[in-house]
Write a protein that binds this DNA or RNA. Structure first.
Lengths: 212, 212
DNA sequence: AGTTAATAACTGACCAGTCAGTTATTAACT
DNA sequence: AGTTAATAACTGACTGGTCAGTTATTAACT
């Protein structure tokens, strides 16, 4: 009786991250409700029962997915908040490039969409997402705007609103990509979008600068 | 045995709209998957079986909800597209006020959120939403921008991107209201947001207008 | 009386979560 | 070094509850 290749390996250490990665993929594809634990297990190379060795419930897995995506971005936000001042246009251009890059090279947007979609059923996840990530990022930008206003570089106006104006087109661009491009919509080139947007914000749309 | 008030009335004509209205409420509260047909029926004052006299499936009801919300807004979009030209700043300020008003006084944003959330499972709804509503509205604004560019009023740049820049903060503000305000986030005053945004787009953020 | 809107009890598929049993791995003892 | 006992990771068939959709029956209207 040759043993042959074993039916499974005991790899307690690696299972949780593998499961969370598989779950991220399935949740991103199907949404929370339509994601099946059997499929998550299959993609993680494990049986469904094994999921319950590491997580209490399906919701628990979802929480872990969101948490894992939030964590690395928190440090990025903190770095942004601590950015050296310098002239406002340079700062804001740099942030625009950085933010657009992160948005395109991480599962952030897929998870963001899920958090938005499931906010009703997981209010505590919406809270974490807001408190730890969105509010921080918005606050950091608003802070930079406020400092620039104090230096007389930027016009008066609500800094938090300015921060939203700054970031909103990118967010909508991401939603556009996830929602409408798959059904045939013309995509937006996000880096180009962001660079045009930043210049518009800085200098305005109008050719003649006449106060109305 | 006095008959008393009848247990139910036969009101074939009114049922469909009543059902769709009830369904809109439940879908908006719970999302598609978590919405139960029993509850939709209960709120429509009807039994679950009666739903199936007027609709084939749950998805069918959802489609009807989306369709009913799209229809009246299509006419609004068409009116906007046919707006008299005039100076660009006036036009764009008017549109901003109108759009902000509609967004706040219709179930549009709730349905929009649902369409975004369920786009994967209902691609044809995402397509309708895009083709009949979003794309039209964006095109109308882009057309106005292009005309203003031709008149030399507005700087060069992709008109469709300008349109997205214009509308994005409002959309994000709506998502903010639906998602983060319920978990304690500071709300945005949408009309104020829009008016600050329009002025920023027109004139820019910077105090000194030096080309960089 | 005949027609049909409407009901309420019912069915069957689906799926999160369970658990009795199996297998890989380690430890203890020759 | 080889054998065996003990442990813990892992499996997969099973269950119980939920819920979209069906149907036998009733009651309203013509």
């Amino acid at each position: 009786m040759e043993p042959g290749p074993p039916k499974f390996r005991r790899r307690k250490a690696d299972r949780p991250t593998e499961i969370v990665e598989a779950a991220l993929a399935v949740f991103a594809e199907k949404g929370f409700a339509a994601a099946k634990l059997d499929e998550i297990a299959r993609r993680a190379g494990v049986s469904k029962g094994a999921l319950y060795l590491y997580f209490e419930t399906k919701e628990d897995i979802f929480r872990a997915v969101v948490g894992q995506v939030i964590a690395p971005n928190m440090t990025a936000v903190k770095a942004m908040a601590a950015a050296h001042p310098g002239p406002f246009p340079d700062l804001i251009r740099g942030v625009a490039v950085a933010v657009a890059h992160v948005a395109q090279t991480s599962p952030l947007s897929a998870v963001a969409k899920m958090v938005l979609g499931e906010a009703r059923n997981f209010p505590e996840l919406a809270r974490v997402w807001h408190d730890d990530l969105v509010s921080q990022a918005l606050g950091a930008i608003a802070g930079a705007v406020e400092a620039a206003q104090a230096r007389g570089e930027v016009k008066p106006g609500d800094p938090r609103t300015y921060a939203l104006q700054f970031i909103a087109p990118l967010l909508v661009g991401l939603m556009w990509r996830e929602t409408f491009v798959p059904v045939g919509a013309e995509p937006f080139d996000l880096p180009k979008l962001m660079s045009q947007h930043v210049e518009t914000l800085l200098h305005g749309l109008l050719v003649t600068e006449t106060r109305s």
